[in-house]
């Protein structure tokens, strides 16, 4: 079993299907927070849903409305279940907190390379590791 160790951003333990992008994600103006879909036209995940996924991305970009977009997604019931990212910013840190989902960063291996979309992963933010349970 492949295991990555990293740092807790928001605590908790969750299992789910990975949705991976090597790109950063825009909040306000880049997602539809009511539907849980990425809408940024130039994004490789454009049109895809992050609802109930473990979202794995390079980080956050764009408007300071990032946390609001993902906070609204939580209220609308379409937020991701977990969040894994490489680049720490105020946008993604605050977004992770208000989505209230387990989140991690700072891994010993690059999660964008090791984990593929469709993999089933366990994110244990409390103990600081991510496991790939089954490969897609």
């Amino acid at each position: 079993m492949i295991k990555l160790t990293g740092r807790k951003v928001v605590g908790g333990v969750i299992e789910g299907e990975a949705l991976v992008t090597s790109q950063t994600i825009s909040g306000w103006g880049g997602v539809n927070p009511m539907k849980g879909i990425i809408t940024e036209t130039r994004h490789e995940l454009c049109g895809q849903s992050f609802k109930d996924k473990i979202l794995i991305c390079r980080g956050a970009k764009g408007s300071s409305g990032w946390s609001v977009a993902f906070h609204l997604a939580r209220l609308a019931g379409v937020a991701p279940k977990g969040l894994i990212f490489n680049e720490m910013t105020t946008k993604i840190a605050l977004g992770a907190v208000v989505m209230r989902i387990p989140a991690m960063t700072g891994f010993d291996q690059d999660p964008l390379v090791v984990i593929k979309t469709g993999d089933w992963v366990r994110l244990n933010a409390d103990e600081g590791y991510v496991e790939i349970i089954t490969k897609a």
Binding site: S64, G65, W66, S67, V68, H71, T89, T90, K91, L94, G95, V97, V98
Partner: peptide
């Protein structure tokens, strides 16, 4: 300042 959000 950092780029803060609404909640912060």
């Amino acid at each position: 300042t950092n780029t803060e959000g609404r909640e912060s």
